[in-house]
C-alpha cells in the first residue's frame, strides 16, 4: 500500500478511536453518577422519608418531609412568578420587538443572565430583599428562583414563537383579529408544546438550585409553612448534611440527592419527549 495513504489511514484510525473514547468518557460519567446515587440513595428509601421531619443532630431516625414540602412550595412560587414574566417578555421580543431598537439589547442581556452564576443571583436577592425585609425568608428564596426562571422562559418563548409561520399571523389579521388576539389565540396555540417544554426545563433548572438559597431561604430544622421565615428545603438540607459528622444525616443526604435527581431527570426527559412529539408529527 502507498505509504502516504497508509499513514493517512492510521491517523484517521487514531482520531476515530479518540473520539470514541471521548464519547465513552462522557457517557460513563453519567452512568457512574447515577449508579452511585441509586446504590447509596435506595439504601435509605423508606416511608419515613415522606412522613417525618429532618432529625436533630445525632438522632438515628427521621425523614425529609419538611424539606420536601418546602422545596415544592418554593419551586412552585418561583416558577409561578418567573414563568409569566418570562413568557410576556419573550412574547414582546418575538412579536413586537422587530422595530424596537431596545429589543436586541434585551435579548443580549437576557442571554447573559441565562448563564450568570446563580450565586450572584443569591447575593442580589440578599441585598434587594433579605436586608430590607430584615431576615432570611422562604419568599426571598422563591424570588431568587424566579430570577433564574425568567431568562430561561424568555429564551424558549421567543424561539418557539419565532417558529410559528408568519402566514398564520397574516391570515388571522386578515380576518380582522386584533394583534393581541392573534398572539394569544393563534401564536400561543401553535407554539403550545414548545412553551410548556420551556417551563418544564426552567422548573428542572431551579428544582436543584442550591447556591441562591444558601443565604436567602436558609433552611430550617422544623416543619414550617411561614413564607416570611426560613423554610426547610432539599438542596440546602443536602448541603448541611453532607458536611456533617453524623452517618444518618449523610444517609439522608444521599436519599435527598436521589429524589432531586429523579425529579429533575424526569422533568428533563418529559420536556424532551414533549418537544420531539411535536417534531415527529
Amino acid at each position: 500500500m502507498n505509504p502516504i495513504y497508509a499513514s493517512r489511514r492510521r491517523r484517521d484510525f487514531v482520531v476515530r478511536t479518540l473520539c470514541f473514547v471521548a464519547a465513552a468518557f462522557g457517557v460513563s460519567w453519567l452512568g457512574l453518577i447515577l449508579f452511585t446515587l441509586f446504590y447509596n440513595g435506595l439504601a435509605g428509601m423508606s416511608w419515613q422519608l415522606f412522613t417525618q421531619n429532618t432529625p436533630p443532630p445525632g438522632a438515628s431516625e427521621g425523614g425529609l418531609l419538611n424539606a420536601l414540602i418546602g422545596s415544592i412550595i418554593m419551586t412552585v412560587i418561583g416558577v409561578g412568578v418567573g414563568a409569566p414574566i418570562g413568557m410576556f417578555a419573550g412574547t414582546y421580543l418575538a412579536e413586537y420587538g422587530k422595530h424596537d431598537r431596545l429589543a436586541p439589547v434585551i435579548r443580549f442581556i437576557n442571554d447573559i443572565l441565562l448563564s450568570a452564576p446563580s450565586i450572584i443571583i443569591g447575593l442580589f436577592i440578599y441585598g434587594a430583599i433579605v436586608v430590607p425585609m430584615g431576615g432570611f425568608s422562604a419568599l426571598a428564596g422563591s424570588l431568587a428562583l424566579a430570577v433564574i426562571v425568567i431568562p430561561v422562559v424568555v429564551r424558549t418563548t421567543e424561539d418557539m414563537l419565532n417558529l410559528v409561520p408568519n402566514s398564520l399571523r397574516e391570515a388571522a389579521s386578515a380576518l380582522g383579529l386584533p394583534r393581541s388576539l392573534v398572539i394569544k389565540r393563534i401564536a400561543y396555540r401553535a407554539a403550545r408544546a414548545g412553551l410548556i417544554t420551556g417551563v418544564l426545563l426552567a422548573t428542572a433548572r431551579v428544582a436543584g438550585e442550591t447556591a441562591p438559597l444558601l443565604f436567602t431561604a436558609l433552611s430550617n430544622q422544623f416543619f414550617s409553612l411561614d413564607l416570611t421565615n426560613p423554610v426547610a428545603n432539599l438542596p440546602v438540607t443536602i448541603n448541611n448534611f453532607v458536611q456533617s459528622p453524623y452517618a444518618y444525616w449523610k444517609q439522608l443526604a444521599w436519599s435527598a440527592a436521589l429524589l432531586i435527581t429523579l425529579a429533575v431527570l424526569a422533568l428533563n426527559i418529559g420536556a424532551r419527549l414533549l418537544g420531539s412529539e411535536r417534531t415527529a408529527k
Binding site: P84, G86, A89, L102, N110, L123, I183
Partner: peptide, 26 residues
C-alpha cells in the same frame, strides 16, 4: 391590545432592570 402590549413590554423591560438591580445591589 394596548393592555397586552404594555404587559409584554414592561416584562421585557424588567429583564433590563434585573441586570441593573444586580449591578447596583452588588
Amino acid at each position: 391590545d394596548r393592555a397586552f402590549y404594555w404587559t409584554t413590554r414592561i416584562s421585557a423591560m424588567l429583564v433590563l432592570t434585573l441586570l441593573g438591580g444586580i449591578i447596583i445591589s452588588l
